[in-house]
């Protein structure tokens, strides 16, 4: 397991320079406009996409097939991708918190909530996207990934156009807890589904 994560982090090292360049670029923009929200989103999206990039690298060199001839089992491969996603999303969280301290107005509690919200969304996205990626591979899974991006966005836009949606105060006050619990459940179901798909996969 450790070996697989080391492998991914080393294999992605070519991407780090590009990412740093992007960070510096957006950091400068944010610094100029003193609005860091755009930068936050970018960091999270890039980190999440790195997980998917690592899967596509593996596919290209037919690594999975090879790894399974070593003392590595299918479960290790699946779980290692979730852990990689968690590590990268955590890096994004830390970076976003640092940028919050540097650029944002700390008087509002909202600004601290944003990095955590993005962290949650990143994990939710991975939970949704990983099972189809294990099933169909990155090439074929791309369409499904797009749907996962766009369908919620569409729903939110339509919902906002429909006018006032009232949510009870009780729910609103407990919203963070509800979200955290649903996220944990979603990730749990996702891991279970991925394991099932991958265990039955013919290499």
């Amino acid at each position: 397991m450790k070996a697989l994560i080391i492998k991914d982090l080393l294999n992605l090292k070519g991407q780090y320079k590009i990412i740093i360049a992007i960070f510096v670029f957006y950091a400068m923009i944010s610094f100029g406009s003193s609005d860091a929200s755009f930068l936050f989103g970018m960091i999270s999206v890039i980190m999440v996409l790195l997980t998917i990039t690592s899967i596509s690298y593996d596919e290209r060199s037919k690594w999975d097939k090879y790894a399974l001839t070593m003392p590595v089992n299918r479960q290790d491969i699946v779980i290692s991708k979730y852990l990689l996603g968690l590590i990268l999303a955590s890096v994004a969280l830390v970076l976003n918190l640092i940028f919050t301290l540097l650029f944002s107005d700390l008087s509002t509690s909202e600004s601290v909530a944003v990095p955590f919200a993005l962290f949650g969304v990143s994990l939710l996205f991975l939970a949704l996207v990983l099972p189809p990626l294990f099933k169909y591979g990155v090439e074929k899974g791309r369409f499904i990934m797009m749907m996962i991006f766009f369908v919620p966005t569409g729903v939110i836009i339509i919902a906002s156009k429909m006018g006032n949606i009232s949510i009870g105060n009780d729910i609103l006050n407990n919203l963070p807890y509800i979200l955290v619990i649903s996220l944990i459940i979603a990730v749990g179901i996702s891991i279970k589904a991925s394991l099932r798909i991958y265990n039955n996969k013919e290499m």
Binding site: K7, L10, N11, L12, K13, G14, Y57, D58, R60, S61, K62, W63, K65, Y66, T69, M70
Partner: peptide, 12 residues
Amino acid sequence: VVIDESCFPEML
């Protein structure tokens, strides 16, 4: 094991 065409990821 040596399997034809299967190897370590390319950037390593």
